[in-house]
Write a protein that binds this DNA or RNA. Structure first.
Length: 1036
RNA sequence: GCCGAAGUGGCGGAACUGGCAGACGCGCACGACUCAAAAUCGUGUUCCGCAAGGAGUGUGGGUUCGAUUCCCACCUUCGGCACCA
């Protein structure tokens, strides 16, 4: 086994030792031992999971990859190595471990490559995934390869289709709060009609998502009079997998519809193209029905807080009320509806609703528009429709809108408020119409300022700050002195170019009232002064008629006040509202608007209602009067699953004359046909549409859309439990034993989509009785990204590291690292590189560092007699202590995902062994025990070298079937401890004391220490504090 | 703007519950071995200071005998969301 290339390096020692103990003399050559053991493990099927049994199970899963032609980089291994270490650890701890791998094989990149290379995606899939398997094996990962999954194989997607059908054949019964067979719904409709269901939805705010919006009610009689086609169409409003016409995001580059989740900043996630709007009939999953459970059940999982937040945010639950506004004023009598319903989370601000805004797509826009405004409104609606999402959401975009000239009646005070159309109101959220409360909503505030709409505060500022600007020469002499006397905060500064004014800030109602009194007596004739913020008061000169203090408490007051101001001070004549006038003064800007909860004001009989109960009380009152009710709203939309592409799971539906119908389960799998061409069609239809034998069936035209890959990945983790079952997606025994996944590890980029979809499928399958758990992934962890090792500079001179990518030519592959340094060194460095969750650049000098550690392990195990260093003091007791302390630290850190410190602990242990050797301990029983522990601890991290050394030490194969070492608590205990002596919190000395020493003795020893005496300077200790086992702090 | 994470040597990073800041590794310096180099081994390596000593965990405050750790305010970087009523 003398290596060829290394013989010259090796010569001296090799020749000498080879003759006597050839096995001891070998150098560590991973390139030889790694393939050898990998072949042996594979032959012996060493990592195969046992069938469900009495043993406790541990299911540890990596996010399965999308296999690409580029293969893996060292960045991908950041995910796979730590989970492999855990899998190996749990096996040694006696668990039956499930650690499988598979491929998310369907999807666009492969299809696009196939089109470009004029080859078949089937072929590419096989090639790519085989390459991945090769790379995985190269790294010595202990997957159970007998469970390999490929989602593009028909023995897998058959069951994806099967689950699709179960979802298609279900609806969400809000009364059971669970999915139920669609047949139950049909029965109910034929016996009782839809009344009970809609009544329930109406009175249970959380149930909004169970049926398509605006589904018409039917009576039993109507239902029974429907033909099959009409019934099928009606049921689509309830099915959990349904087809509906909708505006979708169209990616003109990939020629495919993409989901909301796949659009980032108006651009398609994969292709980067600006998405366009298109109306197509599409397949969806009714994930909205599960919104509440998806949100609530997040409480039951051990996931990173960040991911939980992102999911909750995506679901976007908000509680509020729905309020009906009568359409009125003028001669408008709508034949469609006599009211507009708005959704608000702030029913407590209803009295401040001074206008209403409809989304440009709102069906009542043309109803409320008067003839004279029609042209303007239609032009605006056309403009809004033409906008891309990106334009519409552009950050700096100023609000736009147009008045319809129609009015609505605010139900709480009968006020007649104008109805506007503006694109800042989205049709897809709430009811597509809002009541605008400009005093307490930032968007409405901006809009009202721009268009001169009145802004009336109806919620008190919780912090009682008010401001007042005293205009130059608007008050009599002595006012300033009075302010000072009253302790009021103010400063003097020029007001524009009209002279020096006083900028007053008031705190608390008492001070404000005092200020008003003062102002009333000092205000000069033909002047006014305003107090804004905590109170909204205008003090006018009393001598004029109707003078005194006016409050800005209504639209009428706004008009009155403004009129008087204009009369007194003409420069303000162009202002349309008081708020607009105040907004011109920068001094006031931070007190004009607030969105906090607070005491209701200017709200009729509700004035004075405290902020914490206001919402609730108003909602109850609205409900009693029949003009509103509690309502919960979710941001989450139906999950778009259709793709008009070839390379995906075919949707098992036939379009019959009677509507969309399910394939019979016996017809599954519905295979993807082999075809010559699979370029997207010009029309945007799936290429499958052009394959007549596929499309044409005796029952009707086959659905030609395929499913997005999110469907495949929504259940693959369940298939691993029983991957070869051809009777069902999985056996009951297997799923109950293995699921849920105990530890799921992957990148944070799937925080919303994959994890949310998987959770929904799990809940549907749970409701239908196929699985016994409500959450699929008990614990989740995200690994950090690995960046390229090269530092770059951006235009501003900031240094940064870029992501590894083939196009940038900076990819480092596991292949090259393994070839150079071996898989064990790569594994060690993947763990050691950084904190697991941290994004970090790859370091090319890091792997050799770990390699050196492995070399040291090799030497200390095989040839402890060589190269003795300086003799040291090291007892057998200490050796045992280090060994057992290492076991402790290793387990504690490993279970906390502290992989880097696990490796560090192993390095320290190895260093200690060298010291022990120098002290002459090699060969003692304690030494042999320590070496045994070292190898067992190394096994999960560096499985090849551990196996090789284990075998060379004469132990029976395999180390990977050995139990994990058990901590000897007695050995761990120290006999002596080092106590730090501090004087006034600064370390001044260290003393050695026996562990058993009492507190008093230790304190005395500390006081007597040289360091302490020197720094106490002869002063008596004021306090002596002892922290057990750690330190003594002497305070003087 | 909102939400989240993080700021510690030349670098990656440690420090479990408030108790020795800088474990472990990289890099660097010096030394040993060598004709020499590589490899290996040893020693040192936060900063200032010859030293005694002092300063020091993004900044400024606070709590405490004692703060990288807790509290308040702020700055910077990264990630996510973004007109969601």
């Amino acid at each position: 086994m003398v290596p060829r290339a290394h013989s010259s390096l090796y010569g001296r020692v090799g020749l000498f030792v080879c003759e006597e103990r050839p096995e001891m003399a070998d150098k560590y050559i991973p390139q030889e031992i790694e393939p050898k053991w990998q072949a042996r493990w594979e032959k012996d099927d060493l990592y195969r999971s046992a069938p469900p049994g009495a043993k406790p199970k541990y299911y540890i899963l990596d996010f399965y990859p999308y296999p690409s032609g580029e293969g893996m980089s060292v960045g991908h291994a950041r995910n796979y190595v730590p989970t492999d270490v855990l899998a190996r650890y749990y096996r040694m701890k006696g668990y039956n471990v499930l650690h499988p791998m598979g491929f998310d094989a369907f999807g666009l990149p492969t299809e696009n490559t196939a089109i470009k290379l004029k080859t078949s995606p089937h072929l590419l899939n096989e090639r790519y995934s085989a390459n991945y398997v090769r790379q995985y094996k190269l790294m010595g990962l202990s997957y159970d390869w007998s469970r390999l999954i490929n989602t593009a194989h028909d023995d897998y997607y058959r069951w994806t289709q099967w689950i699709f059908l179960q979802i298609f054949k279900s609806w969400y019964d809000p009364r059971k709060n669970a999915a139920a067979p669609i047949a139950d719904l049909e029965r109910e409709l034929s016996e009782h009609g839809s009344q009970a269901i809609f009544d329930y939805i109406d009175t249970h705010a959380e149930a909004v998502g169970v049926a398509t919006k605006d589904t018409p009610p039917v009576t039993a009689q109507q239902w029974n009079g429907m033909n099959r086609r009409e019934r099928n169409d009606y049921l689509m409003n309830f099915r959990l997998a349904f087809r509906a016409e909708s505006v979708v995001n169209w990616d003109p580059v990939d020629k495919v519809v993409v989901a909301d989740e796949e659009v980032e900043g108006g651009r398609a996630w994969r292709s980067g193209a600006l998405v366009e709007k298109k109306v197509i009939r599409q397949w969806f999953f009714r994930i909205t029905a599960y919104a509440d459970r998806l949100s609530d059940d997040l409480d039951t999982v051990d996931w990173p807080e960040k991911i939980v937040k992102m999911q909750r945010n995506w679901i976007g639950k908000s509680e509020g009320a729905e309020v009906k506004f009568e359409i009125g004023g003028g001669n408008l009598h709508s034949p469609v509806s006599d009211h507009i319903t708005v959704f608000t989370t702030r029913p407590d601000t209803l009295w401040g609703a001074t206008f209403m805004v409809l989304s440009p797509e709102h069906p009542l826009v043309s109803e409320v528009t008067t003839p004279e405004q029609r042209a303007a409104v239609e032009a605006y609606v056309a403009f809004a429709r033409g906008e891309t999402d990106e334009q519409r959401t552009a950050e700096t975009k100023e609000k736009t809108g147009v008045f319809t000239s129609g009015y609505a009646i605010n139900p709480v005070n009968g006020a007649r408020i104008p109805i506007w159309v503006a694109d800042y109101v989205l049709m897809g959220y709430g009811t597509g119409a809002i009541m605008a409360v400009p005093a307490h909503d930032e968007r409405d505030f901006a809009f009202a300022l721009k268009y001169g709409l009145p802004i009336i505060p109806v919620i008190d500022r919780p912090e009682r700050t008010a401001k007042s600007l005293v205009f130059p020469s608007s008050v009599r002499e002595g006012f300033r002195t009075e302010l000072e006397k009253a302790g009021i905060e103010f400063y003097a500064a020029p007001v524009g170019n009209v002279g020096e004014g006083l900028y007053v800030t008031l705190h608390g109602d008492e001070q404000i009232d005092g200020y008003v009194t003062l102002m009333r007596s000092f205000l000069q004739p033909n002047n006014w002064n305003e107090i804004v913020g905590a109170k909204w008061l205008f003090v006018f000169d009393d001598s004029a008629s109707g003078g005194g203090v006016q409050a800005l408490d209504s639209v009428e007051a706004d008009r009155r006040i403004l009129q008087r101001c204009k009369a007194i001070y003409p420069p303000v004549r162009d202002n349309r509202t008081v708020m607009e006038m105040l907004n011109h003064l920068p001094f006031y800007r931070d007190v004009l608007f607030h969105a906090e909860y607070g005491r209701m004001i200017n709200s009729g009989s509700f004035t004075g209602t405290p902020g914490d109960v206001a919402r609730q009380r108003v909602t109850t009152w609205l409900t009693e009067r029949g003009v509103g009710k509690r309502r919960v709203n979710y941001k989450i939309r139906a999950w778009l699953i259709s793709r008009q592409r070839y390379w995906g799971t075919p949707i098992p539906i036939v379009h019959t004359p009677d509507g969309e119908e399910a394939l019979d389960e016996s017809e599954l799998p519905l295979r993807l046909p082999d075809v010559e061409h699979y370029e997207p069609t010009a029309t945007g239809e799936s290429p499958l549409a052009e394959i007549r034998p596929f499309v044409e069936t005796p029952r009707g035209r086959r659905e030609t859309d395929t499913m997005a890959t999110w469907a495949c990945s929504s259940w693959y983790y369940m298939r691993f439990a029983d991957p070869h079952n051809d009777q069902a997606p999985f056996g009951q025994k297997e799923i109950a034993y293995w699921m849920p996944v105990d530890m799921y590890v992957g990148g944070a980029e799937h925080a919303v989509m994959h994890l949310l979809y998987s959770r929904m499928w799990t809940k549907v399958l749970y409701d239908l009785g196929y699985v016994p758990f409500i959450e699929p992934f008990k614990a989740l962890r995200n690994q950090g990204l690995i960046l390229s090792p090269q530092k770059r500079m951006d235009e501003k001179g900031h240094e940064f590291y870029e992501k590894m990518s083939k196009s940038k030519g900076n990819v480092i592959t596991p292949d090259e690292v393994v070839a150079e340094q071996g898989a064990d060194a790569l594994r060690g460095y993947e763990m050691f590189i950084s904190d697991f969750e941290q994004t970090v650049p790859w370091s090319t000098s890091g792997v050799p560092g770990v390699r050196r550690w492995l070399e040291r392990v090799w030497r200390i195990v095989l040839a402890p007699e060589e190269d003795r260093g300086q003799p040291t003091e090291f007892s057998t007791r200490e050796l045992r202590r280090v060994a057992h302390q290492t076991i402790q630290k290793y387990e504690r850190d490993l279970l906390n995902f502290g992989f880097n410190t696990v490796v560090a602990a192993m390095m320290e242990f190895t260093n200690a062994l060298f010291k022990a050797r120098d002290a002459g301990l090699a060969g003692t029983p304690e030494w042999n025990e320590a070496i045994d522990i070292l190898l067992r601890l190394a096994a999960p991290i560096a499985p090849h070298i551990a196996e090789e050394l284990w075998s060379r030490k004469g132990h029976p194969y395999s180390i990977h079937q050995q139990p994990f070492p058990v901590v000897d608590e007695a050995a761990v205990k120290e006999d002596e401890m080092t106590i730090v002596v501090q004087v006034n919190g600064k370390v001044r000395d260290r003393i050695q004391v026996p562990v058993r020493a009492g507190e008093e003795a230790i304190k005395q020893a500390a006081l007597a220490s040289d360091g302490a005496r020197r720094f106490m300077d002869g002063k008596p200790p004021r306090q002596v504090r002892y922290v057990p086992g750690r330190l003594v702090n002497i305070v003087v």
